[in-house]
Design a protein around this nucleic acid. Structure first.
Lengths: 209, 209, 209, 209
DNA sequence: CATGAATGAGGCTTCATTCAT
DNA sequence: AATGAATGAAGCCTCATTCAT
């Protein structure tokens, strides 16, 4: 017997999700307790359970949302950048611009979710569905680059896209723990250099740094 | 059965570690309980604590051991491979040869350790100590390659080494959840290609696949 | 049954404290387990921890309460007794009136608390704060007695107050184990005699018993 | 089939007891673990259990021994002091001379044993047997003082002896936790003053401090 | 709907004691 | 006799979830 509008419920659910996300991101999923979340939001436990059936449920809805947003945001940006190489550079610029503290928090959220998903088969599919979107996004970018003659013809766009994400995640992964924050920007540059050497038809044209 | 030899203790400790690893690897560190471990090993809880001071201690000793072994094994192998490029190829061959199921287990262990460490500052140092060894190992390899004229002179060996590990972990990371196991070998080949293009002075010499 | 009044919580806390006290008093603090307490009260472990953060916390709140009550009760009574010597006599009367079985329980609780506190520095301050109240209470009584000419002028009121409490506790201490209950009343009388001889300006006026 | 002499066993037992006493005194009975004791002594757990049937057994034998020694030591000293008042002063001097840190340790050992005994009826008798010795020792002292005319004739020597011990223990008891170590000597003096005023026939002769 | 007190299974760790060597 | 590894019953505390108000 719902006595509130659907819209009210949706907004409330989104607000709870946002607050919980902050908790998960800063303390980790397992380490965050329901008490942490309700305290952070200033709501009651019962209230929370009115919107989510379990802690895990919150987690899944949250991961869903976050992945949607990431893909949407990149897709939108690419419309403004006609050249494939510029898009790649934009991606690395975006990576470089992210404060390391933020990156670490998101990285750990990301990792913990993958870990969690790896033990919950029903989540693997969910994850892969989103991964596909990300692969496709970059895959199309590379395909464009090949067609425009910027990138090497031998490239398999899907593989290369996969490689791109791996490289990006691998770097973030290492900086999760590494304290050498001052090297981060240079590492991203080197990584961009490596990726472009792999993609470009004429890597000799790259600046020698 | 006291007054045992040091060797007995060492073996026992290793056996416990091995059993615990199986548990950690199949359920995850946080999800594995002490009860799980002792039941799996058929020993008593008190017995376990005679060898390890805490669950975390087991984790640390395990990570220590694994990293030691990895560095030692690679170091030994490199003695038989004079050329830097061959060593790189050997590394990728090794990566490719690893059964994905195994890789996933190790990866999840590795990830969970990093995640866990990222919330426990005292562990970061431990991790970095081992990471340094790994970075140095590959860094020297690259340095050798530069001196022998195989690799580009502009390379910073440390950065490049860092990049290598990031790339490797990034790939493993993605295959943690991805079900496209049949693409794994090809992906490793592409990754090798990318890395060699970045390192080699004359990447044109690379086979076009 | 949430959203209860503050009064409900206060009463519940008091009830738990009372039940726990019964356990502590009959088995001792360290020997009493949380299970003992919750079984005795018929509540759940989690419920208990909703009111107290630890077993030690229960102990502290209990000691706080008891000391508060004692000081308040004495303070109130003293208003009715203008003469310092009468107040001293009232104190001893109160001591004498206490059933030995009760005294023993309280004494063991008191002793175990001090023992426990002596190994936990953060508790010493708590204890001293309350001890100060007790010392001040009797110290003022003695000061009054000096000013009214009842007590000797050379007395240091604080020292004398300290002495009073020591003497009282020392006696209780001995009767903790001693089985000679029939001598208790006479011992308290002797003790009163001793204390008054020490305090009074004209102890010759004391009845020879 | 004992293969060692009885004397060897006795000495070893005494040595273990001495080491265990140090542990009990510095950490308390309950807080001291068998591991603490064997580590402190450099012996094995099995070795310890060859001499004592349990931790409690050690405790009892130890308390026995300590009480014997205390009574014996006072008895011996009194032979050198003919005057009753001097003996009392000697007692207080001894109390005053004891470093507070030492006193605290012994006091907590003493208290913990009493507490422990109060829950173990078979130990109460043991304790009382020793208490009797202590009461008798001081009781005779007071009796001597009465007969020599130093002390008041109305005194009941047993009660007064009891009072003496109560007073001494009460003071030690309070200093167990109190941090005002600088007041200790003065407090002992005041206590001596109080006790002598109670005992002496002519307390006016006491120095006014 | 919202509240938050209550539940209780389950986690980690300790430690007196035993017993094979 | 001496050793110390092994045992396992407790102990304290946490926390996702429920449900009466």
């Amino acid at each position: 017997m719902p006595k509130v509008t659907q819209r009210y419920r949706d907004e409330r659910r989104a607000a709870i999700l946002a607050g919980a996300l902050e908790c998960f991101v800063s303390k980790g999923f397992q380490a965050t307790t329901i008490d942490d979340i309700v305290k952070h939001l200033g709501i009651s436990k019962g209230g929370l359970y009115g919107y989510f059936s379990s802690k895990e449920d919150m987690y899944i809805q949250m991961a869903n949302k976050r992945m949607d947003e990431m893909v949407a945001s990149l897709g939108a940006k690419f419309k403004d950048l006609p050249h494939a190489a510029d898009r790649i550079s934009y991606l690395f610029g975006r990576i470089k611009a992210q404060p390391l503290q933020e990156l670490r928090k998101w990285m750990s959220f990301h990792m913990e979710f993958m870990l969690y998903a790896s033990r919950h088969p029903e989540l693997i599919e969910l994850h892969n569905r989103y991964m596909d979107k990300a692969i496709t996004l970059i895959g199309e970018l590379i395909q464009d680059g090949i067609q425009s003659g910027e990138f090497r013809e031998e490239l398999d766009s899907t593989s290369a896209s996969y490689l791109f994400w791996s490289v990006r995640d691998g770097l973030a992964f290492h900086f999760l723990l590494d304290g050498q924050d001052d090297r981060y920007a240079a590492m991203v540059d080197d990584m961009e250099d490596m990726v472009l050497r792999y993609l470009l038809k004429n890597p000799e044209a790259l600046p020698k740094e």
